[in-house]
Computed example of a mutant assay.
Amino acid sequence: MHTIWKGSISFGLVNIPIKLHSATEDRDVKLRTLHKDCHSPIKYEKVCPVCNVEVKPEQIVKAYEYTKGKFVVLDDEELEKLKKDNEDKAVEIIDFVKMEEIDPIYYDRSYYMSPGENGGKAYSLLRKALAEAGKVGIAKIMIRSKEQMAVIRVLENTLVMETIHFPDEVRSSQDVPNVPEEDKVTKKELDTAILLIDQLTTEFDASKYTDEYRTALLDLIESKRSGQEVVTSAEKEVKANVTDLMAALQASIDQTKPANKEPVKKKRAAAKPKLKKEA
């Protein structure tokens, strides 16, 4: 597994040399753009629109546009010094919190952490301490010229670092347009919706979810590559456009109802159903 970062994590006076390894990978099928007439790959050249000339890499500088058409130019040396000043610092766990207190909207990317040289014992100590306390660590780290907040937690027998967004990077839900101020639903609609949720509730098993589009795309590519005739699968039945909320809920329940089980009895008819609030 490729190492993408080396450094150390500290909490209190405990210092742990660690290595980071990407825990996920992009499995998207990459498609190239070709010239339709000759099937040659298209080049994307960097051209100055004012001078109308191609710009070479050594002629390019970085800048921040603080207002339309006005820039502050930043030298590579200045940026490199900022980067080095931050990367040279050890990553310190600032706080310990309960994981359920962090909303999933903050999460960004996941990395596995392995101990560096002579770091095995301290690594084991942090792993066991987090597991026993039921907490996760909050830290800051510099990765690829960007300072990141991070959550350090235990997954099975491995420490995992989850980079998370800073608060000012998460847009406020108050800015989402057309969100109803209050719930205008009837008790019958709510009871039926909860019944549907109950019927669809199961234990999470990641292995049963697959990227159907990617699989179909790869099958199509392989079929064309091997010279076979491409066939189109039968179209799925077009579902009726059900506009009535109760009718849509009931139709959903009918579709998900197990064939070999008796219908689920309604247990919430007498009292007003309560939705369990997630932490």
Rank of each mutant, 00 (worst) to 15 (best):
Ala139Leu: 14
Asp88Phe: 06
Tyr209Pro: 02
Asp85Val: 15
Lys6Asn: 15
Glu182Asn: 11
Asp88Asn: 14
Pro177Cys: 07
Lys187Ser: 08
Lys128Ser: 15
Lys81Pro: 00
Lys68Cys: 03
Asp191Ser: 06
Lys276Gly: 13
Asp26Arg: 06
Cys51Lys: 10
Cys38Asn: 14
Arg27Tyr: 00
Lys140Ser: 05
Ala139Asp: 02
Lys30Arg: 15
Val179His: 07
Ser173Asn: 09
Glu169Thr: 05
Arg109Glu: 13
Pro167Asp: 11
Met99Ile: 10
Val14Cys: 09
Gly7Cys: 04
Leu200His: 06
Asp76Arg: 13
Glu100Cys: 01
Glu45Leu: 13
Asp85Trp: 06
Lys121Arg: 14
Lys128Phe: 01
Thr33Val: 06
Lys84His: 12
Lys140Cys: 00
Tyr213Glu: 09
Ala206Cys: 03
Leu217Asp: 07
Glu237Gly: 10
Phe96Lys: 11
Ile194Cys: 03
Pro263Glu: 12
Ala129Gly: 00
Gly120Phe: 06
Val264Trp: 03
Thr243Pro: 04
Pro263Arg: 09
Tyr123Asp: 12
Ala234Lys: 15
Val231Phe: 13
Tyr209Cys: 07
Trp5Lys: 10
Asp191Val: 13
Leu245His: 13
Lys187Asp: 10
Val264Asn: 06
Ile152Val: 15
Pro115Ala: 14
Arg171Glu: 13
His35Leu: 06
Cys51Glu: 15
Val47Lys: 12
Glu87Gly: 03
Glu92Cys: 08
Arg268Val: 02
Thr210Met: 09
Gln148Trp: 12
Ser223Ile: 10
Tyr64Asp: 08
Ala234Ile: 06
Thr215Lys: 14
Gly69Asp: 13
Val242Leu: 15
Asp175Arg: 07
Arg153Val: 01
Pro49Glu: 14
Val154Ala: 04
Leu79Lys: 03
Glu156His: 07
Lys46Arg: 15
Asp76Phe: 08
Met113Lys: 00
Leu220His: 10
Ala139Gly: 04
Ala23Cys: 08
Lys184Leu: 12
Leu125Glu: 01
Lys68His: 12
Glu100His: 11
Met149Asn: 12
Leu20Ser: 08
Ser226Glu: 14
Ala247His: 05
Arg144Trp: 05
Lys274Ile: 07
Asp168Phe: 12
Pro104Trp: 09
Arg32Trp: 00
Val61Ile: 14
Pro258Arg: 08
Ser233Met: 13
Val47Ser: 11
Ile221Ser: 02
Thr163Leu: 05
Lys128Leu: 00
Arg27Ala: 06
Ala234Phe: 04
Ala139Gln: 03
Glu156Asn: 09
Lys19Glu: 15
Leu190Glu: 13
Lys83Thr: 14
Ile143Gly: 02
Leu190Pro: 04
His35Arg: 11
Thr232Asp: 05
Lys19Ile: 05
Lys135Asp: 00
Lys89Met: 03
Thr256Arg: 08
Thr192Trp: 07
Lys6Glu: 15
Glu65Gln: 14
Ile9Tyr: 02
Leu217Arg: 03
Thr3Asp: 02
Val72Asp: 01
Ile253Gln: 02
Ala259Gln: 10
Cys48Ser: 09
Pro41Lys: 05
Lys276Cys: 01
Tyr107His: 13
Val53Gln: 14
Glu222Asp: 15
Ile253Arg: 02
Leu82Glu: 07
Glu278Trp: 08
Phe71Ala: 04
Lys239Arg: 13
Thr192Ile: 10
Met99Asn: 04
Ile143Ser: 04
Leu218Phe: 05
Glu181Leu: 11
Cys38Gln: 00
